[in-house]
Design a protein around this nucleic acid. Structure first.
Lengths: 195, 195
DNA sequence: TAGACAACTACACGACTGTGTAGTCAAGCC
DNA sequence: GGCTTGACTACACAGTCGTGTAGTTGTCTA
């Protein structure tokens, strides 16, 4: 939250931080203003209302994430993206977006539905075996969001910050381990499908 | 919320319902009292404070879930439990517990850590391939909780209530599909592990 | 130099929060 | 009968919330 940002940008960054940590209702405009080092009146002057501030944060986070994605693809090409390299910037944005989705914000929910749609298409064209691509994609999507929304619990279980290099590596490897081996045998799967 | 329950039980059930839907901070004691059909003073008379009410709900939900699990194992044996049969009763309790975990309640967080511990042991004894059982179990646990905490989003994507028979079946089958086939090839997994 | 206008602050408002207090009412016991 | 006790309600209190309003400052420009 450096001083060379405009007050408007500092307010927006503070809002993204506190909304992420406490949820929309849990972060008051007075807290956000204090975090940004301005009066609550100035927040109101720049954004009009708490709801408008939240919308501005949503759109900023969404556009910034898209821009980051494009930059990365342009720079290094799609096939050899290093997850670790984008993490420091994209992580707070993803965390905010996950929380905003949970709180039902319009822009965030639209992005979620779009992601589910994309995931379903991906599954179709990549040989995923299911007869309900939408459900498959939706469940994957909420499970992924769970990691962001329940970050505190995850860190408690791991004993370290998942934004730290080692914590992030442990989480990433766990994902790889989970999604590279089947947890159910074909027989177990068939049995469960009968219920 | 039937009338033949004691007022204390009605308040507790109403609290579990509203805490689940709106989170701890989002549900006021006046709303809970109204949902239970009593005055807010009576809520206070029975539970002393909002915090104590939340603790009572935590312990009730935990004990009830344990009891349900025991009953089920005693009745039908471990190997042929039908998921659908316990769903109507256990679902609200799990939803409440997930939300309470997210809100950082002590009893709920303790249960979460216990679950992660149990999951790690399960992975060890069931041939899961990973060199960080705790991380593996923790990530699985938060992903599973994500489904409860982000239930609204999931239902929006599916277009139906996941407590409905068809919605619940779609979700369960998606889980089966996801966890019965690897999403990453061994080569992809090895590449990601190098990051 | 005067005026316009954006950036910014201070303060008061009504609504809602959890909590505290006083009191009513009916059932059980001496 | 009187008396205690637990279930229950009504209401007031202080604090915090989002919002509204009035006013100050500084900078650009006609």
């Amino acid at each position: 939250m450096s001083e060379d940002l405009t007050a408007r940008a500092r307010i927006r960054d503070a809002a993204i931080k506190l909304f992420s940590e406490r949820g929309i209702d849990g972060a008051s405009i007075r807290d956000i203003a204090a975090e940004a080092g301005v009066s609550s009146g100035l927040l109101r002057h720049h954004f009009g209302s708490k709801e408008a501030l939240r919308q501005a944060c949503d759109e900023y986070a969404r556009d910034r994430m898209f821009a980051l994605g494009r930059e990365l693809v342009d720079e290094v090409g799609l096939e050899n993206i290093s997850l670790a390299s984008i993490q420091p910037v994209s992580f707070p944005l993803q965390t905010y977006m996950a929380r905003s989705m949970m709180d039902g914000s319009e822009t965030a929910v639209a992005l979620f539905l779009q992601t589910v749609e994309y995931g379903a298409e991906w599954a179709k064209t990549h040989g995923v075996v299911t007869d309900d691509y939408r459900a498959w994609s939706a469940v994957i999507a909420v499970m992924k969001l769970g990691v962001f929304v329940l970050r505190d619990l995850l860190e408690l279980a791991l004993g370290e910050d998942i934004a730290s290099p080692t914590g992030y590596a442990r989480m990433t490897r766990a994902f790889v381990d989970i999604f590279s081996q089947p947890l159910l045998t074909p027989e177990q799967a068939d049995n469960l499908r009968k219920d």
